[in-house]
Protein backbone atom coordinates (compact mmCIF):
# COMPACT_ATOMS: atom_id res chain seq x y z
CA UNK A 1 0.00 0.00 0.00
CA UNK A 2 1.34 3.43 -0.82
CA UNK A 3 1.71 6.07 1.89
CA UNK A 4 -0.69 8.96 2.42
CA UNK A 5 1.96 11.50 1.48
CA UNK A 6 4.89 10.57 -0.73
CA UNK A 7 7.66 12.94 -1.67
CA UNK A 8 9.73 11.43 -4.43
CA UNK A 9 13.07 12.72 -5.69
CA UNK A 10 12.07 16.30 -5.04
CA UNK A 11 14.37 18.99 -6.36
CA UNK A 12 13.84 22.66 -5.54
CA UNK A 13 16.00 25.40 -7.02
CA UNK A 14 16.35 29.09 -6.21
CA UNK A 15 17.70 31.90 -8.32
CA UNK A 16 20.18 33.82 -6.21
CA UNK A 17 22.95 36.32 -6.82
CA UNK A 18 25.27 33.31 -6.91
CA UNK A 19 23.26 31.86 -9.80
CA UNK A 20 20.82 28.99 -9.51
CA UNK A 21 21.29 26.95 -6.33
CA UNK A 22 19.72 23.62 -5.43
CA UNK A 23 17.98 23.95 -2.06
CA UNK A 24 16.53 20.44 -2.12
CA UNK A 25 18.11 17.57 -3.99
CA UNK A 26 16.67 14.06 -4.41
CA UNK A 27 14.49 14.39 -1.33
CA UNK A 28 12.25 11.36 -0.83
CA UNK A 29 10.02 11.00 2.22
CA UNK A 30 6.78 9.26 3.11
CA UNK A 31 4.26 9.73 5.88
CA UNK A 32 1.32 7.53 6.77
CA UNK A 33 -1.96 8.48 8.41
CA UNK A 34 -1.65 8.53 12.18
CA UNK A 35 2.12 8.70 12.03
CA UNK A 36 4.57 11.44 13.00
CA UNK A 37 7.61 11.97 10.84
CA UNK A 38 10.28 14.06 12.53
CA UNK A 39 12.51 16.10 10.24
CA UNK A 40 15.68 17.27 11.92
CA UNK A 41 18.83 19.15 10.92
CA UNK A 42 20.66 22.43 11.45
CA UNK A 43 19.22 25.64 10.06
CA UNK A 44 19.50 26.04 6.34
CA UNK A 45 19.38 22.31 5.66
CA UNK A 46 16.07 22.48 3.80
CA UNK A 47 13.48 21.52 6.40
CA UNK A 48 11.21 24.51 5.83
CA UNK A 49 11.61 24.39 2.07
CA UNK A 50 10.45 20.76 2.17
CA UNK A 51 7.38 21.82 4.16
CA UNK A 52 6.62 24.77 1.91
CA UNK A 53 6.92 22.52 -1.16
CA UNK A 54 4.22 20.22 0.18
CA UNK A 55 2.00 23.21 0.90
CA UNK A 56 2.59 24.65 -2.57
CA UNK A 57 4.02 27.78 -0.97
CA UNK A 58 7.52 27.98 -2.43
CA UNK A 59 8.01 31.67 -3.28
CA UNK A 60 8.20 31.71 -7.06
CA UNK A 61 10.23 33.48 -8.31
CA UNK A 62 12.95 33.06 -7.03
CA UNK A 63 12.13 29.42 -6.27
CA UNK A 64 10.73 26.59 -8.34
CA UNK A 65 10.15 22.89 -8.08
CA UNK A 66 12.68 21.60 -10.56
CA UNK A 67 11.89 17.91 -10.43
CA UNK A 68 10.25 15.04 -8.63
CA UNK A 69 6.74 14.52 -7.29
CA UNK A 70 4.71 15.13 -4.14
CA UNK A 71 1.75 12.74 -4.02
CA UNK A 72 -1.12 13.16 -1.59
CA UNK A 73 -3.21 9.99 -1.75
CA UNK A 74 -1.85 9.49 -5.26
CA UNK A 75 -2.50 13.03 -6.56
CA UNK A 76 0.72 14.81 -7.64
CA UNK A 77 0.67 18.23 -5.99
CA UNK A 78 3.44 19.54 -8.21
CA UNK A 79 1.06 19.26 -11.17
CA UNK A 80 -2.27 20.52 -9.84
CA UNK A 81 -3.69 23.98 -10.54
CA UNK A 82 -3.34 26.82 -8.05
CA UNK A 83 -7.13 26.67 -7.50
CA UNK A 84 -6.94 22.99 -6.60
CA UNK A 85 -3.97 23.69 -4.32
CA UNK A 86 -5.95 26.41 -2.55
CA UNK A 87 -8.78 23.96 -1.98
CA UNK A 88 -6.39 21.37 -0.57
CA UNK A 89 -4.65 23.83 1.75
CA UNK A 90 -6.62 24.05 4.94
CA UNK A 91 -8.89 21.16 4.07
CA UNK A 92 -6.38 18.37 3.48
CA UNK A 93 -3.03 20.00 4.23
CA UNK A 94 -2.36 22.43 7.06
CA UNK A 95 0.73 24.01 8.47
CA UNK A 96 1.68 25.73 11.70
CA UNK A 97 4.68 27.99 11.85
CA UNK A 98 7.31 28.94 14.39
CA UNK A 99 5.98 32.43 15.01
CA UNK A 100 2.18 32.37 15.07
CA UNK A 101 1.98 36.17 14.90
CA UNK A 102 3.18 36.10 11.29
CA UNK A 103 0.24 33.96 10.20
CA UNK A 104 -2.48 35.54 12.34
CA UNK A 105 -4.15 38.73 11.16
CA UNK A 106 -3.71 41.38 13.87
CA UNK A 107 -6.95 43.22 13.09
CA UNK A 108 -9.43 40.34 13.41
CA UNK A 109 -10.40 38.47 16.55
CA UNK A 110 -9.05 34.96 16.76
CA UNK A 111 -12.60 33.53 16.82
CA UNK A 112 -13.41 35.30 13.55
CA UNK A 113 -10.19 34.07 11.95
CA UNK A 114 -10.89 30.45 12.83
CA UNK A 115 -14.51 30.84 11.72
CA UNK A 116 -13.30 32.30 8.45
CA UNK A 117 -11.02 29.29 7.90
CA UNK A 118 -13.96 26.96 8.56
CA UNK A 119 -16.30 28.80 6.17
CA UNK A 120 -13.68 28.67 3.44
CA UNK A 121 -13.93 24.90 3.28
CA UNK A 122 -17.32 24.00 4.75
CA UNK A 123 -20.83 25.11 3.86
CA UNK A 124 -21.78 26.67 7.17
CA UNK A 125 -22.93 30.15 8.17
CA UNK A 126 -20.92 32.53 10.32
CA UNK A 127 -22.85 31.84 13.53
CA UNK A 128 -22.25 28.10 13.27
CA UNK A 129 -18.63 28.57 12.23
CA UNK A 130 -18.04 30.85 15.22
CA UNK A 131 -19.59 28.25 17.56
CA UNK A 132 -17.28 25.64 16.02
CA UNK A 133 -14.35 28.01 16.52
CA UNK A 134 -15.15 28.35 20.22
CA UNK A 135 -15.39 24.57 20.53
CA UNK A 136 -11.99 24.24 18.85
CA UNK A 137 -10.43 26.80 21.19
CA UNK A 138 -11.80 24.75 24.05
CA UNK A 139 -10.36 21.60 22.47
CA UNK A 140 -6.85 23.05 22.23
CA UNK A 141 -6.97 23.98 25.89
CA UNK A 142 -7.67 27.70 25.88
CA UNK A 143 -9.36 28.71 29.13
CA UNK A 144 -12.68 30.66 28.85
CA UNK A 145 -12.86 30.02 25.09
CA UNK A 146 -16.05 32.12 24.71
CA UNK A 147 -14.28 35.20 25.93
CA UNK A 148 -10.93 34.43 24.28
CA UNK A 149 -12.58 33.98 20.87
CA UNK A 150 -13.31 37.72 20.99
CA UNK A 151 -9.68 38.63 21.71
CA UNK A 152 -7.24 39.94 19.14
CA UNK A 153 -3.98 38.02 18.63
CA UNK A 154 -1.84 40.55 20.52
CA UNK A 155 -3.98 40.05 23.62
CA UNK A 156 -2.85 36.43 23.90
CA UNK A 157 0.38 34.94 25.20
CA UNK A 158 2.76 33.20 22.79
CA UNK A 159 1.56 29.79 23.93
CA UNK A 160 -2.10 30.71 23.46
CA UNK A 161 -1.41 32.12 20.01
CA UNK A 162 0.22 28.84 19.02
CA UNK A 163 -2.87 27.01 20.31
CA UNK A 164 -5.01 29.30 18.17
CA UNK A 165 -2.86 28.41 15.17
CA UNK A 166 -3.32 24.74 15.93
CA UNK A 167 -7.08 25.21 16.31
CA UNK A 168 -7.17 26.95 12.93
CA UNK A 169 -4.94 24.32 11.33
CA UNK A 170 -7.09 21.41 12.49
CA UNK A 171 -10.45 23.15 11.96
CA UNK A 172 -11.11 21.12 8.80
CA UNK A 173 -9.44 17.96 10.03
CA UNK A 174 -6.60 17.97 7.53
CA UNK A 175 -5.03 14.65 6.65
CA UNK A 176 -1.53 16.07 6.82
CA UNK A 177 -0.45 18.55 9.46
CA UNK A 178 2.99 20.13 9.13
CA UNK A 179 4.45 21.79 12.21
CA UNK A 180 7.58 23.82 11.41
CA UNK A 181 9.46 24.40 14.69
CA UNK A 182 6.12 25.12 16.39
CA UNK A 183 7.58 25.62 19.86
CA UNK A 184 10.89 27.34 19.23
CA UNK A 185 9.54 30.65 20.50
CA UNK A 186 7.89 29.12 23.57
CA UNK A 187 8.98 28.21 27.08
CA UNK A 188 9.57 24.54 27.84
CA UNK A 189 6.50 24.06 30.01
CA UNK A 190 4.36 25.52 27.24
CA UNK A 191 6.25 23.50 24.62
CA UNK A 192 5.40 20.36 26.57
CA UNK A 193 1.72 21.35 26.50
CA UNK A 194 1.82 21.93 22.73
CA UNK A 195 3.55 18.59 22.11
CA UNK A 196 1.00 16.76 24.26
CA UNK A 197 -1.78 18.56 22.38
CA UNK A 198 -0.41 17.58 18.96
CA UNK A 199 -0.29 13.96 20.11
CA UNK A 200 -3.89 14.09 21.38
CA UNK A 201 -5.09 15.64 18.15
CA UNK A 202 -3.35 12.91 16.21
CA UNK A 203 -5.05 10.26 18.33
CA UNK A 204 -8.41 12.02 17.85
CA UNK A 205 -8.48 11.93 14.10
CA UNK A 206 -5.45 10.15 12.79
CA UNK A 207 -3.69 12.99 11.00
CA UNK A 208 -0.22 12.42 9.59
CA UNK A 209 2.12 14.90 11.28
CA UNK A 210 5.41 16.20 9.95
CA UNK A 211 7.25 17.77 12.85
CA UNK A 212 10.21 19.93 11.87
CA UNK A 213 12.68 20.61 14.64
CA UNK A 214 16.37 21.02 15.36
CA UNK A 215 15.94 19.36 18.76
CA UNK A 216 16.75 15.65 18.98
CA UNK A 217 14.96 15.54 22.35
CA UNK A 218 11.75 16.66 20.67
CA UNK A 219 12.28 14.02 18.00
CA UNK A 220 12.63 11.37 20.68
CA UNK A 221 9.39 12.34 22.38
CA UNK A 222 7.29 12.95 19.29
CA UNK A 223 8.44 11.04 16.24
CA UNK A 224 7.65 7.56 14.99
CA UNK A 225 10.07 7.96 12.12
CA UNK A 226 12.93 10.38 11.54
CA UNK A 227 14.52 11.96 8.50
CA UNK A 228 17.81 13.78 9.06
CA UNK A 229 18.53 16.51 6.53
CA UNK A 230 21.83 18.07 5.61
CA UNK A 231 22.51 20.68 2.92
CA UNK A 232 19.27 19.96 1.07
CA UNK A 233 19.37 16.16 1.18
CA UNK A 234 17.97 13.47 3.41
CA UNK A 235 21.08 11.77 4.77
CA UNK A 236 19.47 9.22 7.07
CA UNK A 237 15.93 7.94 7.45
CA UNK A 238 14.43 5.24 9.64
CA UNK A 239 12.26 4.48 12.67
CA UNK A 240 12.99 6.86 15.52
CA UNK A 241 14.45 4.14 17.72
CA UNK A 242 16.84 3.03 14.97
CA UNK A 243 18.07 6.55 14.30
CA UNK A 244 18.39 7.49 17.97
CA UNK A 245 19.89 4.23 19.23
CA UNK A 246 21.94 3.29 16.16
CA UNK A 247 22.72 6.50 14.30
CA UNK A 248 24.71 5.65 11.18
CA UNK A 249 25.69 8.85 9.39
CA UNK A 250 28.52 10.83 11.03
CA UNK A 251 26.27 13.91 11.02
CA UNK A 252 23.47 12.12 12.87
CA UNK A 253 25.96 10.69 15.36
CA UNK A 254 27.31 14.20 15.89
CA UNK A 255 23.85 15.73 16.35
CA UNK A 256 23.02 13.22 19.05
CA UNK A 257 26.28 13.40 20.94
CA UNK A 258 26.61 17.18 20.95
CA UNK A 259 23.43 17.68 23.00
CA UNK A 260 24.17 18.63 26.59
CA UNK A 261 22.03 15.96 28.26
CA UNK A 262 20.00 16.44 31.41
CA UNK A 263 21.48 13.28 32.86
CA UNK A 264 25.10 14.34 32.99
CA UNK A 265 27.35 17.33 33.32
CA UNK A 266 30.99 18.32 33.05
CA UNK A 267 32.19 15.91 30.35
CA UNK A 268 33.32 17.71 27.22
CA UNK A 269 30.63 17.77 24.56
CA UNK A 270 31.44 16.16 21.25
CA UNK A 271 31.58 18.91 18.69
CA UNK A 272 30.75 18.92 15.05
CA UNK A 273 33.43 21.30 13.80
CA UNK A 274 32.69 23.96 11.21
CA UNK A 275 29.34 24.97 9.75
CA UNK A 276 26.83 23.92 7.09
CA UNK A 277 28.29 25.00 3.73
CA UNK A 278 26.30 27.56 1.72
CA UNK A 279 24.34 26.07 -1.18
CA UNK A 280 26.35 27.82 -3.87
CA UNK A 281 29.51 26.14 -2.63
CA UNK A 282 28.29 22.55 -2.73
CA UNK A 283 30.67 20.55 -4.87
CA UNK A 284 30.61 17.13 -6.43
CA UNK A 285 31.36 15.26 -3.21
CA UNK A 286 29.64 14.73 0.13
CA UNK A 287 28.38 18.04 1.55
CA UNK A 288 29.41 16.98 5.05
CA UNK A 289 33.00 16.20 4.08
CA UNK A 290 34.54 19.41 5.49
CA UNK A 291 33.22 18.57 8.94
CA UNK A 292 33.68 14.83 8.85
CA UNK A 293 36.32 12.76 10.63
CA UNK A 294 35.73 9.75 8.36
CA UNK A 295 36.26 11.48 5.03
CA UNK A 296 38.38 9.77 2.39
CA UNK A 297 39.07 10.25 -1.32
CA UNK A 298 35.74 8.82 -2.40
CA UNK A 299 33.85 11.37 -0.33
CA UNK A 300 35.25 14.22 -2.43
CA UNK A 301 34.50 12.74 -5.80
CA UNK A 302 30.93 11.48 -5.52
CA UNK A 303 27.80 12.19 -3.47
CA UNK A 304 26.82 9.21 -1.36
CA UNK A 305 23.28 8.00 -2.08
CA UNK A 306 20.67 7.25 0.55
CA UNK A 307 20.76 3.46 0.45
CA UNK A 308 20.28 0.72 2.97
CA UNK A 309 23.58 -0.94 3.78
CA UNK A 310 22.15 -3.32 6.38
CA UNK A 311 20.84 -1.43 9.35
CA UNK A 312 18.83 1.37 7.79
CA UNK A 313 19.31 3.91 5.00
CA UNK A 314 22.15 6.41 5.39
CA UNK A 315 23.91 8.46 2.72
CA UNK A 316 27.55 7.94 3.63
CA UNK A 317 30.40 6.17 1.88
CA UNK A 318 32.08 5.17 5.14
CA UNK A 319 28.88 3.55 6.42
CA UNK A 320 28.32 1.80 3.12
CA UNK A 321 31.92 0.57 2.99
CA UNK A 322 31.61 -0.71 6.55
CA UNK A 323 34.37 1.64 7.73
CA UNK A 324 32.22 2.94 10.59
Amino acid sequence: MSALLEIENLRVAFNTRHGEVTALDSVSLTVNAGETLGVVGESGCGKSITALSVMGLIPSPPGRIAGGAIRLAGEDLTRVSEARMRALRGAELAMIFQEPMTSLNPVFTVGDQIAEAIMLHQKVGHAQAFRDAVALLDRVGIPSPDRRARDYPHQLSGGMRQRVMIAMAVSCRPRVLIADEPTTALDVTVQAQIFDLLNEIQRDFGAAIILITHDMGAISEMADRVAVMYAGRVIEEADADDVLDHPQHPYTRGLISCIPALGKGDTELREIPGVVPPLHRLGAGCAFAERCAHRNGRCDSGKPLLVNHGHHPAACHAVQEGRI
Binding site: V188, A192, D196, A218, S220
Partner: peptide, 21 residues
Protein backbone atom coordinates in the same frame (compact mmCIF):
# COMPACT_ATOMS: atom_id res chain seq x y z
CA UNK B 1 10.54 22.26 34.18
CA UNK B 2 12.58 19.07 34.28
CA UNK B 3 9.71 16.95 33.12
CA UNK B 4 8.87 19.39 30.31
CA UNK B 5 12.39 19.57 28.87
CA UNK B 6 12.59 17.24 25.86
CA UNK B 7 14.93 14.39 26.45
CA UNK B 8 16.42 11.54 24.47
CA UNK B 9 15.54 9.29 27.38
CA UNK B 10 11.82 9.68 26.66
CA UNK B 11 10.75 7.74 23.61
CA UNK B 12 7.44 7.86 21.84
CA UNK B 13 7.75 4.15 20.98
CA UNK B 14 7.90 3.35 24.69
CA UNK B 15 4.78 5.38 25.41
CA UNK B 16 6.32 7.81 27.89
CA UNK B 17 4.03 9.85 30.08
CA UNK B 18 5.20 13.18 31.42
CA UNK B 19 5.65 12.71 35.18
CA UNK B 20 4.58 16.25 36.07
CA UNK B 21 2.22 18.27 33.91
Amino acid sequence: LLSAAPSLARRKSRGYVRPVK
